[in-house]
Design a protein around this nucleic acid. Structure first.
Lengths: 106, 106
DNA sequence: TATATTTGCAACCGAAGGGTTGCTTAAACC
DNA sequence: GGTTTAAGCAACCCTTCGGTTGCAAATATA
């Protein structure tokens, strides 16, 4: 089952899980207490996050603490990079096209 | 039908479409030529991108030129912001936890 | 040892996703 | 005016997704 970081962060619940784990490692039960769903539903989300390495496991007896692996989000940041210069430049793509049309006319 | 930027960029084809439109506005037919799918499939993707305003339309006769709206990607960048400091700090979350445990012990 | 707790796994369900084919509309072209 | 051509819309199909319930395995606790 191929998992993709972009697909992993597409779900709002999974983004929220990442936010929680960013401040503190947590168990599935601990996470589930903060949502209005079952533990199994949360475990499924965590499994998806785990499969694309956004989360790492630490075993402690019968409990499993999930840790956030921020490095994996670099992939998203990397994809975003070329676009970042665009919105910084105060001109979006449509503005540029209109500007070019005006130049051709004059 | 609620559309979300995160969900929109989850699909690799849609990310590729955005990459193309970033350099040049294109029509559905023009886009479809670069993929091994039908025009209708691409149109569906473009519609999704349009619904969350990642793309804007410019009508020219019977053709429709789709323009990339980079500003909308700021939402992703904004969500990424707090995590960016984490991977910059050379310590990921797991490292910090282990470090804390070590401090408590000593 | 018996019981309670934490967790993962499997089966199932309804909704949404990505794709295709067929059709209609409207502009361009002969 | 008749015919291409560009595009959207609708129906359908199969797969994936998010969620649930039920159950088994393993650790903690009495």
């Amino acid at each position: 089952m191929r998992r993709d970081v972009f697909q992993a962060i597409a779900d709002p619940t999974r983004r929220e899980i990442l936010n929680m784990l960013a401040s503190q490692a947590m168990t599935p039960n601990g996470l589930a207490e903060n949502f209005h769903t079952t533990r199994q539903a949360i475990s499924k989300h965590v499994k998806i996050l785990s499969e694309c390495q956004l989360v790492k496991q630490e075993y402690s007896g019968r409990e499993i603490y999930y840790h956030f692996n921020s490095k994996k989000l670099k992939e998203v940041d990397k994809w975003l990079q070329p676009f970042r210069t665009m919105w910084d430049s105060r001109f979006d793509q449509l503005d540029n096209v209109l500007k070019n049309l005006k130049n051709k006319r004059s």
